[in-house]
């Protein structure tokens, strides 16, 4: 995983004084899918997001990295309108979804989200987990929804588990079902919140493979992750979050290998120490 250990320890020669010295985040192809401007979120007086900006273009994969509590999960929850914003705007395909009067249920149908702890519905079989939203939200017939669900499950090698209940699956299988469940809505944008953090190390690979395939298919994704190697491989853009702001962003080879910000270097040095890069 480390062909050339990154020169992150100690102050490097290329310390850019200005913030965001790298190329702008709009380098990706295609139109903008998501644009967050000046997002602010507090929890009981504590500022979790502090004027955060983020832009994601179509077919782009953006990896959010940063220490626990830097605001990665909160950002994803805000984008999915699961949290109330305290300032700023969010646009999805040019439409402001943070505007008052917008029906959050309708917005969430266009955004898929996968959680760290899978959050499958334990009382429903795998197939019912996957078909719940297509049937209830998109009003597909049972036959139609199940055909598509089986197709999706088959593609990730879980066709045999369609009738099993979540507690009969391994963590990796559960997380793959959770991703399939989100995909069944044909989302415009997929949010992945540390989807491998709860998994045993030997199960991480199968989930990452699935995300890799999604990227190949052109899915637009924002993923919060601790897997630096994976972020480097799959992301078009890496954003380092610290204290609720994007401190540094750019192509992975730049942010991960030649970070310009002292905070980023500090963080990556700690990660290397923990032997995760």
């Amino acid at each position: 995983m480390d062909p050339k250990p990154t020169p992150t320890a100690g102050p490097g020669p290329n310390v850019g004084p200005g913030p965001n010295a790298g190329p702008g985040p709009n380098a990706g192809p295609g139109p903008e899918v998501l644009r967050c401007r000046g997002l602010r979120k507090e929890f009981g007086g504590q500022v979790v997001l502090d004027g955060l900006d983020l832009t994601v273009a179509e077919h782009q994969v953006v990896a959010l990295i940063g220490a626990s509590g830097s605001g990665k999960s909160t950002l994803l929850r805000c984008v999915n309108l699961l949290e109330e914003l305290h300032d700023g705007t969010i646009e999805l395909d040019g439409e402001e979804i943070s505007a008052p009067g917008i029906d959050p249920d309708k917005v969430r149908r266009r955004i898929g989200m996968v959680f760290q702890s899978y959050n499958l519905f334990p009382h429903l079989s795998v197939l019912d987990n996957v078909t719940l939203a297509p049937r209830r939200v998109h009003r597909r017939s049972r036959a139609e929804a199940e055909t598509r669900a089986r197709e999706l499950l088959d593609r990730v090698g879980l066709a045999a588990k369609a009738d099993a209940y979540p507690d009969r699956l391994s963590g990796g299988q559960q997380q793959r079902v959770a991703i399939v469940r989100a995909l069944a809505n044909s989302p415009r944008l997929l949010l992945l919140d540390e989807v491998t953090s709860a998994l045993d190390p030997e199960l991480v690979g199968e989930v990452l493979t699935m995300i890799r395939d999604l990227k190949a298919e052109g899915m637009t994704m924002v993923l919060a992750t601790h897997e630096m190697g994976f972020a480097r491989e799959v992301a078009d853009q890496v954003c380092f979050l610290d204290a609720g702001r994007v401190v540094e962003s750019g192509p992975p080879e730049q942010v991960l290998a030649h970070p310009t910000q002292p905070r980023t270097r500090q963080f990556l040095a700690r990660i290397i120490e923990a032997n995760r890069l």
């Binding site: 699961l82 249920d105 955004i111 989200m113 959050n119 719940l132 939203a133 209830r136 939200v137 989100a182």
Partner: peptide, 19 residues
């Protein structure tokens, strides 16, 4: 987290309750 998962799929409050 079950509610968050249901709402993230676009289910309404009522559908989340019911299903």
């Amino acid at each position: 987290s079950q509610l968050a998962a249901a709402r993230s799929l676009g289910l309404t409050h009522r559908q989340t309750m019911r299903h």
